[in-house]
Nucleic acid binder design. Structure first.
Length: 954
DNA sequence: TGGGTCACG
DNA sequence: ACGTACGTGACCCAC
């Protein structure tokens, strides 16, 4: 980065606060807390951005601008300016001194001028730089206000963010995005539409779209005001009444390029960083990876102690009286060291190299025997499997690790190139693995259960999954073990990439690494998992979530492992035939579309489609919807509206449907059929949804078509395993509305369910005030939509949209509904109030969904969160109920040694593959177990069907 | 890699 | 005044 006569002068100007805020919120889902309890997300994010731009863009000159601490001239113009902006989060406040020190350590100047904001400083310097012959000037910020400063040479550089790559906005880009001729007009648009985050008022009733249209027509706010007479109705009134406010807003949005700051290129020259200072700072902040990247120094680790049987009879597995506490002279492990830190000061133990540990390689028959003996003495053990890959159907076991005391773990390599030997080794540990009295702890333990199933092991005893424990604690965060270790143990485990290398063509697996090296990694995983369990358990207890974990989530794990392992048989040849048939339809429709369009094009490309429809064919009659990226919108809604006047729109919709069916289902599913058993094995993820539902991936078997004729056909390919079996599908009828009835205790709704009346007809009868017998299908359809709306946290606009009716009519329907079901209204209000107070909503079993935006001043965000406050307990309770039913049914089938297998869960439906002779036995029992899983004050109803395929079973 | 679209409850 | 139903995952195209 030294100045070696650069050919082009390239200046980067960073907007510090904008980048810091963005970095801070980027880490809000996965907060980075160091061992001193400091949230380092903002510092890390900002520094990463800085390092990246230095390394990738290699600027010749650079500066970082901060807003002045004091009020700026804008506050004098408008007292309310940025008034409603929330106080700076405390974590950002503590981050700033560090960020400044880091910038200084990089020998980069900090730019700050009293009375001005960073954008004014950057704008001024950018302009001067251009005057001084700089070929490239980049303003680094995510803030769109800067668009007004862009010129041929001055551009905006939006740093890479949350997976997005960095983006440069040049002059063309800005003009196109704002639909303007000159960049200065950005201030006119911002002045009209205002900016809620800066409390710039704008003119009421004018948003982004109106602002663009008006400026396109009138060129400026001033000219718009001068021609206010040409406007119509309410808009004219607003522009007239708020003319001054509009002009002020434009002024506030204008970046001033006359800041009294000298332009001294030498000051901004890039120079080498002060490595000593950086090392100290990164050390203090505990940025190890960043330090390694910037300072080219890597971590050093010790390896596991191999146990050599030749070294004598003395076992390295401590012996003792069988009491855990007496096994060791002194407790070792991560947790203990953290506690010491607090007492003794700044020593921070963070990786394996820093932490006292005894990780043992157990690789002889004698040692394995001894390990087993100890395992069998424990009440709870964490364990982990190492395998050759992540695909459970093909992965083979490489090793097993065990831990029952923090800091002390054992790794048993498995001969992965010899199936018989591997089986024999696993069998050695069968007494432990199948022991009913020992709690098995794991991180995502379903994976380990599934791997062991391939070796004929059926894990005994209860399981405890730390991933699920954390899912209950923080449902909307990630539950990756490395992150959990960082956050809760202040410990950085060896990364898998460090061990087996990055993903690539010749990806190594655990099998390619010497067992002694794998031992550290594997032992550490078991160790960390055990310690996480000990951290999570009291937290769950305190929040009343331990019962939900122990009685629902954890017991569900082996059930799901079985369901996935069992798989679903797919009739691939039927799929193949249907694929050909669909292809026939598709080709036919394509021809018709091209004929209508007068040209061939890619119908699957929204861009090309939009151009054909709206530019070439001139459809839509003027009012054409666009997406936020400026393309023509061609969604279902738009095309349906077009269909009456343009048959081509209907054809495109049909084409979309058919290609969707072909690519997502008919073509994809047979590819996922396992060659070993001819079935597809989905993965049920138990820790992704915010509400407690399961999700299904690879393939997703929870969204197999049913709503349309051609879609339904696909279900015919879901078949029983053989001719002696049959599919049984059991689904809860209206489970969410029943839960609403129970929660609200609405007398009318409860009565309808107790009477067994069709709930949508019943609602229609009440809302439209006609006798039940006079409810027609149209009324029922509307009532059904209303009932769904109720569960989702209804809004008049949403209902109107769905029903294709006016807003007024929707308001009337909702009012009528609440009049007839007053307790439902009360319940909805109470749910929101409760959530406002607690900042979370909870299900009947106490499962939480945090709603931290429920008190937001942002009305849109708040509204969204309020609907969640209503929906989450309902959707989540339904999820709780079916999970309990699954556990009970699984247990019963197991206990009765029946051949029936649960093969799918689709939120309110369970599908079984049953021997034909068991059908009469299982149906009433499945019904009973589902109905009584969690009794409510209204009866539950479960419909059951059977068939030779999934469609028939409905 | 994200946005658009669409499949399900 | 503002933007709108709740929860998911997969595919395609264009960048």
């Amino acid at each position: 980065m030294t100045d070696t006569a650069p050919a082009r002068k390239k200046l980067f100007l960073l907007d510090a606060f904008a980048l810091i805020y963005r970095a801070h919120f980027a880490f809000s889902k996965n907060p980075r807390i160091n061992s001193k309890g400091m949230n380092t997300g903002a510092v890390l994010g900002f520094t990463n951005t800085l390092v990246e731009v230095l390394q990738k863009e290699k600027p010749t000159h650079i500066g970082v601008a901060f807003d002045a601490a004091k009020k700026t001239f804008r506050h004098e113009q408008f007292a309310e300016y940025k008034a409603q902006r929330q106080a700076m989060p405390e974590d950002i406040g503590t981050a700033i001194p560090y960020i400044k020190k880091i910038i200084q350590a990089f020998n980069i100047p900090i730019l700050m001028v009293d009375g001005f904001e960073a954008d004014d400083v950057i704008g001024t310097l950018a302009q001067r730089a251009e005057e001084h012959g700089f070929e490239e000037v980049y303003m680094m910020t995510p803030d769109k206000d800067y668009c007004q400063l862009v010129t041929e040479k001055v551009k905006i550089y939006r740093p890479a963010f949350m997976g997005n790559s960095a983006e440069v906005l040049d002059l063309d880009h800005v003009l196109q995005r704002f639909e303007i001729d000159r960049v200065e007009q950005v201030t006119d648009i911002l002045g009209l539409q205002g900016d809620a985050s800066d409390n710039i008022p704008g003119i009421p009733g004018i948003g982004e779209k109106t602002a663009k249209a008006l400026i396109k027509q009138y060129g400026s706010v001033e000219n718009l005001i001068a021609n206010v007479d040409q406007l119509k109705g309410k808009q004219q009134e607003n522009v007239r009444n708020f003319a001054e406010q509009g002009l002020l807003s434009k002024e506030l949005a204008t970046i001033h390029v006359n800041v009294p700051i000298p332009f001294e290129p030498e000051e901004l020259c890039c120079s080498v960083p002060d490595e000593e200072k950086l090392t100290a700072l990164f050390d203090e902040l505990e940025f190890r990876q960043l330090a390694a990247r910037v300072l080219k120094t890597g971590p050093v680790r010790t390896s596991a102690t191999p146990i050599s049987p030749a070294k004598g009879k003395k076992s390295l597995i401590p012996t003792g009286a069988g009491h855990q506490a007496s096994l060791f002279a002194a407790p070792v492990g991560i947790t203990e060291f953290i506690e010491e830190d607090e007492d003794t000061g700044p020593i921070v133990r963070r990786t394996l190299a820093d932490v006292a540990h005894q990780y043992h390689l157990v690789d002889t028959p004698a040692l394995r025997k001894e390990l087993l003996k100890f395992l069998l003495q424990q009440k709870e053990v964490s364990f982990d499997t190492e395998t050759t890959g992540l695909d459970t159907m093909t992965a083979r076991l490489v090793g097993l690790s065990f831990c029952w005391l923090p800091g002390e773990a054992y790794y048993v390599p498995v001969p992965h190139d010899d199936d018989a030997a591997a089986q024999a080794l696993v069998d050695e540990f069968r007494p432990f693995l199948e022991h009913e009295g020992i709690l098995k702890i794991g991180q995502n333990i379903k994976y380990d259960l599934t791997i062991l199933k391939h070796y004929g092991i059926r894990i005994g005893g209860p399981v405890f999954d730390t991933m699920l424990a954390h899912y209950l604690l923080e449902p909307d965060m990630r539950h990756n073990m490395d992150v959990l270790a960082e956050t809760y143990l202040h410990y950085t485990p060896i990364s898998i990439i460090e061990l087996i290398g990055p993903k690539g063509k010749k990806q190594k697996t655990m099998a390619d690494i010497p067992p002694a090296e794998v031992a550290d990694y594997a032992c550490e995983d078991a160790d960390v998992t055990l310690q996480l369990k000990h951290v999570f358990e009291p937290k769950l207890e305190a929040l009343g979530l331990l019962k939900l974990l122990n009685e629902v989530e954890n017991p569900l794990v082996p059930v799901l492992a079985d369901v996935e392992y069992e798989g679903v048989r797919i009739d691939s040849s039927a799929m193949g035939e249907y694929s050909a048939q669909l292809q026939g339809y598709i080709t036919d429709i394509e021809k018709q579309i091209f004929a209508e369009a007068g040209q061939e094009f890619n119908i699957g490309s929204p861009k090309q489609l939009g151009e054909v429809l709206f530019d070439k064919l001139q459809l839509g009659g003027g009012k054409i919807k666009k997406t936020k990226t400026g393309q023509y919108a061609t969604g279902e809604e738009v095309l349906s509206a077009l269909a009456p006047e343009a048959p081509v729109a209907a054809l495109i919709l049909e084409h979309r449907q058919l290609t969707k069916l072909r690519s997502t289902y008919v073509e994809a599913l047979p590819q996922l059929v396992c060659s070993l058993d001819g079935r597809v094995h989905t993965s049920f993820n138990q820790a992704v949804t915010a509400t407690g539902r399961l999700s299904s991936t690879n393939p997703n078997l929870q969204n197999i078509p049913i709503r349309t004729e051609k879609g339904r056909e696909i279900r015919k390919a879901f078949v029983p395993r053989d001719a002696d079996h049959i599919l049984v599908a059991a689904d809860y009828s209206q489970i969410e509305l029943r839960i609403m009835a129970d929660f609200s205790q609405d007398a009318t709704m409860i009565e309808a369910f107790r009477q067994g009346i069709d709930i949508h007809s019943s609602t229609a009868s009440k809302v439209f005030k006609v006798p039940l017998s006079e409810v027609d299908s149209e009324m029922r359809r509307k009532a059904k939509t209303v009932n769904f709306g109720i569960i989702y946290g209804i809004s008049a606009f949403g209902l109107a949209q769905r029903l294709g009716i006016g807003r007024k009519e929707a308001v009337d329907i909702i009012e009528a509904y609440f009049q007839e079901f007053p307790a439902v209204k009360q319940f909805m209000d109470a749910s929101i109030n409760k959530a406002r107070e607690l900042e979370y909503a909870e299900t009947l079993l106490g499962r939480r969904r945090y709603l931290r935006d429920i008190n937001s001043r942002n009305a849109t965000l708040r509204g969204f969160t309020e609907r969640n406050a209503i929906n989450a307990p309902i959707q989540g309770t339904a999820a709780d109920i079916i999970k309990i039913a699954m556990i009970r049914i699984h247990d019963w089938l197991d206990k009765e040694k029946l051949g029936t297998r649960m093969i799918l869960q689709v939120h309110d439906e369970l599908v079984f593959d049953a021997p034909k002779e068991e059908v009469d036995l299982i149906i009433p029992r499945i019904q009973e177990l589902m109905i009584n899983a969690l009794p409510l004050s209204v009866p539950m109803e479960v419909e059951v069907g059977t068939g030779q395929n999934w469609l028939q079973a409905h």
